[in-house]
């Protein structure tokens, strides 16, 4: 090519430098700076930042709410992984293997909540859970189970489990489609061979379908874990704001409260470091646990 080395480098710089600069300023710098802030006590006014060493970390370990927020986050991770994976695997198998005519309809409908705003989903479900007007309590009354009625989001015991359903409701479609992509790549001949060997449909599912879509299942589970640990606080903030009595606080919503409501920015950053460390550890551990020989027949 007829361009000089200098021109080439100039073009390369034109392509990469502005983007990378902005990315550094607005993503890399804040992340490292957050780590730095976690060693300060700071209420926001720049002159008053005081270096306190590991005090924030000591506070983190003695804060009684912290273990609860961690527990709540992992409760959501586990219930969402099971709820979403079981339902979406069932739907994916049903829609690909059963020759259902109206399958495209279900695909379109099930996916739709995935592109709704968390705010809309949260508010919609707040009304569904509304103690006097909501669908759940009216439905229980309708089938004669008044004793099961509860002020769902207002109850310390039921508020956190109540947050699982909206998340599953909103998440199914995406994972169902990911699994359907995996299933449609499985060659029909495996099923025919299994059929000839006399395998029941149930055996076919366990011995053929599941091992062959394991890569998609693994990615889905990791994706649910990452998005829950990095984003569960959004639905918490919309629906319960961490209440009643801290019973739904997750790590992220507690960070928001400490930093942006109570102006403990240093301590907030410390919680942020904890979120980062815990989610990285969780992802590595899960990747290790779910590693499995690639299956080929």
């Amino acid at each position: 090519m007829v361009q000089s080395k200098r021109q080439r480098n100039l073009f390369l710089a034109f392509c990469l430098v502005p983007t990378f600069l902005l990315f550094s300023v607005f993503t890399l710098y804040p992340l490292f700076n957050g780590l730095y802030y976690s060693f300060f006590q700071w209420s926001g006014a720049s002159s008053l930042a005081e270096f306190v060493g590991f005090d924030n970390y000591r506070r983190l370990f003695s804060d009684e709410i912290i273990p609860r927020t961690i527990l709540h986050d992992y409760f959501l991770v586990v219930t969402k992984v099971f709820g979403i994976m079981i339902l979406s695997t069932f739907f994916a198998v049903a829609l690909t293997q059963m020759k259902i005519k109206e399958a495209p309809f279900y695909r379109i409908v099930f996916f739709f909540p995935n592109i709704m705003s968390v705010v809309v989903i949260g508010i919609l479900w707040m009304f569904i859970y509304n103690p006097s007007l909501g669908l759940i309590n009216s439905g229980l009354e309708f089938i004669g189970l008044e004793s099961w009625q509860r002020p769902w989001l207002g109850s310390e015991d039921w508020a956190l489990p109540s947050l699982v359903l909206p998340s599953v409701w909103a998440g199914i479609g995406l994972f169902m489609l990911m699994l359907m992509g995996g299933i449609s790549n499985i060659s029909k001949s495996y099923y025919e061979a299994a059929e000839i060997d006399g395998a029941t449909e149930w055996q076919q599912f366990w011995k053929v379908t599941l091992p062959l879509i394991w890569p998609q299942i693994k990615i889905s589970i990791l994706y649910i874990i990452i998005t829950t640990l990095n984003g569960s606080f959004i639905i918490v903030q919309v629906m319960t704001k961490g209440g009643p009595n801290n019973s739904t606080h997750v790590m992220g919503s507690y960070l928001y409260e400490q930093a942006f409501v109570k102006y403990n920015f240093g301590y907030g950053a410390t919680i942020g470091v904890m979120i980062l460390v815990l989610s990285l550890i969780t992802v590595f551990v899960m990747q290790f646990l779910m590693r499995r020989e690639k299956v080929e027949y």
Binding site: T27, L31, N33, G34, V273, L276
Partner: peptide
Amino acid sequence: RFRGNRLLFTLYISAMMIPMVLGWIPLFFL
């Protein structure tokens, strides 16, 4: 082709998995 191509790509892609909550506090002051 340039030196650090893979590294830069990995850096951008891994940012998809990093929780950004930590960065939001400094970003607020920035």
